[in-house]
């Protein structure tokens, strides 16, 4: 097909005729799965239709032959005269390829890959266009699903909020905290605190390598916001290096409960809740 479009006056057509018969080509066009192959006249009106095109787009041959191919496009594309642009590009450059939404007879949309190929006679005069449409809806849906899942996993891993006791939430943070992540942390934590009516949240930064002043500011804001809801935050896992950094940066955390270990943090949370854990006997 390619050699045919690249050199309309060359020997491509002859070779094609030599190895295949027109009947076999017609059978291919009518039976190939997932592709709708149709012909347009130079103005873009449909001149040939195929059973595969009917399966994909819904129109019957007698309904669509003679109609302009802008019928396959959603209204927003027709407002911008997309079909005219496509024909112009295909005529000038030999072909035009596009991926986008197309419309079926019943108005539903499908995601399609479309290739328009200019067809010229031996003198090089434009006789029409070949249009190959491939339904990519399934591929797109699969891609969308994978993208959504990985996004969910990423968000879960970025800010895991778990309830460790009635009234105690734990957020084990691992890795560097950028501002996007801390923003997400604030929203998730506030939401979970409200949902679970938890008066205490433990924010464990054992797995956070370093803290800069911006991150610290974000953490302070998060603590302030949680306080407004009526809950407290205990910042745990404040290692010696983190403590040194915080003091050297001049960050005032005197309003925030801080503990060096998660154990100490849990003890403090129980104290806030007025609970006591002791030996069984």
């Amino acid at each position: 097909m390619k050699s045919k479009t690249k050199s309309p006056n060359g020997g491509g057509e002859k070779r094609l005729e030599a190895v295949t018969t027109p009947d076999m080509l017609r059978m291919l066009v009518e039976n190939v799965r997932d592709y709708a192959i149709i012909l347009l006249d130079p103005k873009g009106n449909v001149t040939s239709w195929s059973p595969t095109a009917e399966r994909l787009k819904g129109w019957r041959a007698e309904e669509i032959i003679g109609q302009h191919f802008s019928k396959f496009y959603p209204p927003e594309d027709n407002v911008s005269h997309k079909t005219a642009t496509e024909l112009a590009v295909a005529e000038k450059e030999g072909r035009f390829e596009d991926e986008g939404w197309r419309v079926r007879k019943d108005g539903t949309r499908f995601w399609a890959n479309v290739v328009l190929t200019a067809l010229r006679d031996k003198e090089g005069k434009l006789v029409g266009f070949g249009k190959v449409t491939r339904d990519l809806s399934e591929r797109r849906a699969a891609e969308e699903k994978i993208r959504k899942q990985s996004q969910e996993i990423f968000e879960m891993a970025a800010v895991p909020v778990v309830q460790v006791w009635e009234g105690i939430l734990l957020v084990p943070l691992i890795g560097t905290l950028d501002s996007q992540r801390t923003q997400h942390l604030m929203e998730r934590l506030l939401q979970r605190v409200t949902e679970t009516s938890s008066p205490v949240a433990l924010l464990d930064i054992t797995g956070v390598p370093t803290i800069d002043s911006q991150t610290a500011q974000h953490l302070i804001e998060t603590v302030a916001a949680v306080r407004l809801l009526g809950a407290d935050v205990v910042l745990t896992g404040v290692r010696p290096t983190i403590a040194q950094t915080l003091v050297h940066l001049g960050i005032d955390l005197s309003n925030v409960f801080t503990r060096s270990s998660l154990t100490a943090g849990v003890r403090m949370a129980l104290e806030i809740l007025n609970l006591k854990v002791g030996p069984k006997s």
Binding site: M186, V193, T222, A225, L228, L229, G230
Partner: peptide, 16 residues
């Protein structure tokens, strides 16, 4: 005085 039941979205904007 105890302020009760602030919504998360309100707390976020208030802090901001």
């Amino acid at each position: 005085t105890i302020v009760a039941g602030m919504r998360p979205a309100v707390a976020v904007t208030a802090t901001q």
